[in-house]
């Protein structure tokens, strides 16, 4: 059997398409755990902030530390299934970079607690949207949806802002994580 150049090119294109799909699927599956973890962390944070506003600031420090540590644990615990394992700790480092830059803006702008409540999720959503340029459109959709909902809540949620954010940001991240897991399982 001998092949024509067109057949060879078609086969190589087929290979490239499957490789890309496989990497994307594994990336989705790998990222889903972090989405769900952060979703749970911020849900707890906003609900706690609604009922105990005076202790909210201290609680957020503890919760952020738990989120970073938990995400690092999840990422390192997952089996290195593929070359997309390169994502691993860089995913956590990227979050730490965003967090550090976030603090620079907080120090410069001195936002109100309500502004802070919408600022932090959007710092991380910015990271997710940018990551989506490489990892897949679904990441962009997740980031943009949570951003839109959090901005809506900032202007119109009134006294229910924290609970709105618990649902929009926390619930949104959990929903995105579950969707990513499903997409990762079914290719």
């Amino acid at each position: 059997m001998s092949l024509k150049p067109d057949d060879a090119a078609a086969s190589l294109n087929e290979i490239a398409a499957v490789e890309q799909r496989t990497r994307r699927t594994l990336t989705y599956a790998r990222s889903s755990a972090c989405f769900i973890l952060w979703g749970a962390v911020v849900t707890v944070g906003y609900v706690f902030g609604h009922f105990f506003p005076l202790q909210a600031r201290a609680a957020w420090f503890v919760l952020f530390a738990c989120g970073f540590a938990g995400c690092a644990f999840v990422v390192m615990r997952l089996p290195r299934r593929a070359s997309v394992g390169r994502l691993d700790l860089r995913l956590v480092y990227a979050q730490l970079v965003l967090y550090a830059y976030g603090w620079v803006f907080v120090a410069l702008l001195s936002p109100t607690p309500r502004q802070l409540g919408v600022f932090w999720p959007n710092v991380f959503m910015l990271g997710i949207v940018i990551a989506g340029l490489w990892l897949g459109r679904f990441f962009m959709l997740c980031g943009l949806s949570v951003t839109a909902l959090s901005v809506l809540g900032f202007f119109w949620a009134g006294d229910w802002f924290d609970l709105w954010m618990a649902a929009a940001n926390g619930g949104g991240l959990i929903a995105c994580g579950l969707a990513l897991r499903r997409m990762g399982e079914h290719g």
């Binding site: 086969s11 087929e14 499957v18 490789e19 496989t22 394992g85």
Partner: peptide, 15 residues
């Protein structure tokens, strides 16, 4: 079979 091998080839050796 080409697709199958392409997908499996992306994985780490023991995966």
């Amino acid at each position: 079979r080409l697709k199958i091998m392409a997908a499996l080839n992306v994985l780490a050796p023991s995966a």
